[in-house]
Write a protein that binds this DNA or RNA. Structure first.
Length: 220
DNA sequence: CCAGACGTTGTT
DNA sequence: GTCTGG
DNA sequence: CCAGACGTTGTT
DNA sequence: GTCTGG
């Protein structure tokens, strides 16, 4: 689960529209400030070395910025194994629509890429095999999320990528100070269809605007 | 000291 | 591994 | 995160 | 309610 790519010969990464916890995400990290950055796929859901089974990771898909420096599950990864998780959108779920939840898509206004603050870890299975996994740091939501959800993933400013990635950076306070809600201008919100709620749907239709809701009294 | 947890989200 | 609770 | 299953004996 | 699968 640590497929690695050559940055001098960048791969065509398949587009994903609906990534479930436990599936792989693309990550960027580096061994040192001077070393080349690596693109790798890590399993989403942090598996600390002491995990007894891979199921632990499914409960570690996010790490709270407020406590990430102290929690046993994340502390060492926060100190020494930080990464970026590039994406051009994320979903959050708002109130119920009948028995289902309404998903919303958040993107940059220009639909460009951003980078989540991520952590990774290495879980050893026996002497040979290992699983590399990652988690995404969350923080208080900004106003673009208002009324939908009170948490959001941390989106790093590009000028902070190098500091975040440098494994030798041990300025915990400075690192922690990066884990804040993004400026509102970085994101816009769009209502998308309920098909996002099933991770079996992973295609461009997931990010299409939601079909208009027929209202009561309206003819079909 | 040993044993047991180690997490987030959202809900009641 | 490391922290918390007892 | 959300959706969907969650169970055994014994057989239409 | 809680666990599993995606």
């Amino acid at each position: 689960m640590a497929e690695q790519f050559d940055l001098d010969d960048p791969p065509e990464l398949e587009a994903r529209y609906n990534i479930a916890p436990g599936q792989s995400v693309v990550t960027i990290r580096t061994d040192s400030a001077g070393a080349p950055r690596r693109i790798e796929r890590f399993r989403w859901g942090l598996l600390p070395p002491w995990a007894e089974d891979a199921g632990i990771g499914l409960r570690m898909i996010n790490a709270r910025s407020e406590s990430v420096a102290l929690k046993p599950a994340f502390r060492s990864a926060f100190r020494r194994r930080r990464c970026l998780v590039p994406a051009d959108g994320f979903y959050e779920w708002g109130g119920a629509v009948g028995s289902l939840k309404q998903p919303y898509l958040f993107t940059r206004p220009d639909r460009g890429l951003f980078a989540f603050a991520g952590l990774f870890d290495v879980w050893h299975v026996g002497a040979e095999d290992e699983v590399r996994s990652s988690t995404i740091v969350t923080t208080e939501a900004n106003r673009v999320l208002a009324g939908i959800h009170d948490r959001m993933p941390v989106i790093l400013h590009p000028r902070d990528y190098a500091n975040w990635l440098d494994p030798a950076n041990d300025d915990i306070d400075a690192l922690q100070s990066l884990l804040v809600p993004s400026p509102e201008a970085w994101l816009e919100r769009q209502t998308v269809g309920l098909r996002v709620n099933s991770t079996r749907n992973d295609d461009p239709e997931c990010i299409a605007p939601a079909p208009p809701q027929p209202r009561q009294g309206e003819l079909l």
